[in-house]
Design a protein around this nucleic acid. Structure first.
Lengths: 339, 339
DNA sequence: TTGAAAGCGCTACCAT
DNA sequence: ATGGTAGCGCTTTCAA
């Protein structure tokens, strides 16, 4: 029951040396401070024996750094974010950092509150999928010398490091692919919000149409959480009222899932009657019959780059505006191919 | 650029009062300490004005509590765990706690290391999906007065709070359902490890067979990460070499996904030739054609109970062995129903 | 009704 | 080569 926390002081006393000496040895400065090997060995042995671990809290207070990075995403239970979380976590731990996470739910107020809470916790860095209207807060964070890296989307007019993917280009390519497959009436289903990545995807879609005879219909749905009733109904309605559509582009996978539901309900044959493409590949797109063509974001590289930028800022403090834009991969599958 | 951290001292100076006074007011002890309303108001106004937030690090050091809970699961990118993470997070934040997470990868060594790291961070509580061989560590955690709640599985012989579901009962019911549908040769696909929840599911399966004419074939695969080649091959092999199977129970959803892959490859008709049931319902099971029958765990209640137990231990310190076992829901869908 | 000061565990400057 | 000690920001006891 008694939780006797051994402190550096206890060690010093037990060994009859000073706190300073122990601290230096603990921090690998034995050589530098020219402490005798004998002493060093003695202290290290003792430390190992009693399994002493220094208190990070005290270190944090002293150093003004917490070695904690916050990972703020729209929704941590979303597969895409969860996968990145997993990879980031690994890299962070390897470098002695811990990750705290939270879901912003795309709610600017909530996000602001969270950021403020984290500030008082002395977190060292922020990895954020910014919500609309966060410019000011992010700018302030930067001014106050926090390490910040945005991802998935970025904030126009704020000079902050980010890692995103080639949304526009990939969307354009995928749309062109549909056109090459003979689609004449294209649908585009996206979320009703001004997140940059979604805008870019739509731009890509529209750009692909220029100079072609293909017609288009666009649906924007409010989408907060997965399986939201409202969105589901809207999508069904959209397809019912647009029987002419012979090709559809979903700007993200959860919309595609709802779309599939709707199309199944309407008895549409994929790809014979309607061909599909979605952004954000997913394990199930490959499992579904027919398998769904999708644009795959390079999860590993995103995570890799995020932590690279983060660590660089954290350790060196200089790099502030690294913009990284990664290419995606279009995975062609049966859902989009003309039979 | 300059990050001028306002401290309680600055406030005291600016207002010409003592640190103590400010601290009392900050902690809502103004009344108790009989500080004049005038003073209280003055301080509060100033605090609001400059947007001061106390340093949690310093508080932690002083109080010996960090208000941080660790959420250690097998794999945070797994949908089931990610969903629970999301819900827990919410409850934690509401109560002033933060969540740090990490993936154990079911690796006992890694888990032990992580726990040791967290101890030195003074985290207050642990929510853990225990790996095999963690008895000792958990017991020690309890002895040292940390708040601990296990979930998904528990550890036999350790008197620790946990939240799990009725694995055996639900598995039994689902198996009986298959038998009622006329299955005579049942397959059971599970992971090759001695996690209690998996054992219970298998027990339920076997119990359902007692006294019936149904025969069974069991496959145990090592499964670390999703989409692992090896597991995929094993499952395909299993189905090829057991053409007699007319019903299969998957002990968890990712095995079912691999199983579906295999069955599609083998051209088996579901449910005409083979009927399926899986543990752990998933969004995709409903979307798949035919929709897959699955046992749904009560995610919300699990999260709810986890945090309840955690907070109770954290705030009162007494409750140590609350065992909560929640019922599941069998979602009948086409994959298991005789046509 | 308010303030001084000890001390949580640690790092690092300055002595010796 | 080793030690004394200030101080990070806060809470809380004791004193005034």
């Amino acid at each position: 029951m008694a939780k006797k926390k051994t402190s550096i002081k206890d060690i010093a006393e037990a060994l009859g040396v000073s706190i300073t000496t122990v601290s230096f040895i603990l921090n690998g400065k034995a050589r530098e401070k020219r402490i005798s090997d004998e002493m060093t060995g003695k202290v290290q042995d003792y430390i190992k024996k009693i399994g002493y671990k220094p208190s990070h809290i005290a270190q944090s207070l002293r150093l003004g750094k917490s070695k904690i990075i916050v990972f703020m995403v729209e929704d941590i239970s979303n597969q895409f974010f969860a996968s990145i979380a997993r990879l980031i976590e690994e890299k962070a731990y390897k470098n002695g950092y811990k990750i705290i996470y939270c879901s912003t739910e795309n709610d600017t107020i909530k996000t602001k509150e969270l950021i403020s809470t984290f500030k008082m916790r002395n977190v060292d860095g922020f990895i954020i999928t910014p919500t609309p209207g966060l410019e000011h807060v992010v700018r302030k964070l930067l001014e106050e010398d926090f390490a910040v890296v945005l991802f998935d989307r970025w904030i126009p007019d704020v000079d902050c490091s980010y890692v995103v993917v080639e949304n526009k280009l990939s969307a354009k390519e995928a749309t062109q692919h549909l056109i090459h497959q003979g689609c004449k009436n294209l649908g585009f289903v996206t979320v009703d919000s001004s997140q940059t990545q979604m805008n870019d995807r739509m731009d890509g879609f529209l750009e692909a149409l220029i100079g072609t005879e293909a017609k288009s219909a666009i649906l924007k749905v409010k989408f907060h959480t997965i399986s939201e009733q409202e969105a589901s109904r809207k999508i069904l309605e959209f397809f019912s009222s647009h029987p002419e559509l012979d090709g559809v582009f979903f700007s993200t996978n959860y919309l595609a899932f709802e779309g599939l539901h709707a199309l199944i309900k309407l008895g549409k044959k994929i790809p014979e009657q309607i061909r599909l493409v979605s952004f954000d590949d997913h394990y199930f797109f490959n499992l579904f019959q027919p398998p769904i063509t999708a644009i795959e974001q390079p999860i590993e590289e995103i995570a890799e780059n995020l932590m690279d930028l983060m660590l660089k800022q954290l350790e060196h403090g200089e790099v502030q505006n690294n913009k990284i834009i990664l290419p995606n991969k279009l995975n062609l599958r049966e859902s989009s191919v003309y039979k």
